[in-house]
Computed example of a mutant assay.
Amino acid sequence: MNKRHFLQASIVIVGATLLSRYLTQETETMAASNTKFEVNKSEAEWQTILTPEQFRVLRKHGTERAFTSPLDKQYAEGTYVCAGCELPLFTSDTKFNSGTGWPSFFQPIAGAVGSTVDRSFLMTRTEIHCSRCGGHLGHVFNDGPAPTGNRYCMNGAALKFLPA
């Protein structure tokens, strides 16, 4: 084995080791985030009550494509609830147009959401989930408007809108 092949093999081994540690941490965090909620259903039960897109987002930590949710441009007065268990999560008076293509809010209803560390896609973010069923809703970032400075960037597929 020449020096070039040795260096390439070493890089691959080190990269695979670091990636496996990173993926293991993500899996452990995601598994822990789905174990202690008031509403617990089997995967088959979730699949019967959710659309395929809702199931992918809420239960498999998916993300819908930007600008595809009709809730992104919904500004009527009302409440946004979890599509899985209908827990009220956000009110319309905390919604704003972030320009990102996902429904965005600067503050959830008190006690409605929880957070976990999301290490997917080789980055660390704060994942937001429903506090009742553990469904994945989206992520929170610190680039939102006053008064909180937060942007709760939610998947529209994870939400239902109930007009006032």
Rank of each mutant, 00 (worst) to 15 (best):
S33A: 15
T51H: 00
M30K: 12
F37P: 01
Q47S: 07
F67A: 07
T51I: 08
A44M: 00
Q47T: 01
F96A: 06
L23T: 05
T48A: 12
K95P: 09
A44K: 10
K41L: 15
A44L: 11
K95N: 11
F105D: 09
F96K: 00
T94W: 12
Q74F: 09
G62V: 01
L18A: 09
A66P: 03
T63A: 08
N40I: 13
T68Y: 06
Y75N: 14
A31L: 07
E26Q: 15
Q54G: 06
E28A: 14
T100V: 05
D93H: 14
E38V: 13
T91N: 14
S104R: 03
P52W: 06
Y22M: 03
D93A: 05
T68S: 15
S69V: 08
G99Q: 12
L71V: 14
W102A: 03
T63V: 13
F96W: 14
R21W: 11
D93T: 14
T24Q: 04
F105Y: 07
A66M: 08
V57D: 03
A66V: 15
E77S: 12
I109T: 00
A76K: 14
M30L: 12
L23Q: 14
S98K: 05
T79E: 03
V39K: 09
I109G: 08
K60Q: 15
V39G: 05
Q47L: 00
Q107A: 15
S92K: 02
L19F: 03
Q74L: 08
T17L: 10
Y75C: 05
G99T: 12
P88W: 07
A31I: 14
T100K: 04
T48S: 13
L89Y: 04
P88E: 05
T63S: 12
S69M: 10
A31G: 09
I109L: 08
E64F: 06
Y80K: 08
Q25N: 02
C85Y: 02
S33L: 05
V57A: 11
A16D: 00
A31K: 07
N34E: 10
L58N: 02
K73R: 06
E38K: 09
L23M: 14
S33V: 02
Y80A: 04
L87V: 13
Q107W: 09
A32Q: 11
T94I: 07
Q74E: 15
Q74P: 10
M30Y: 10
Q25Y: 10
P70E: 13
V57C: 05
T27Y: 12
G99Y: 08
K60R: 10
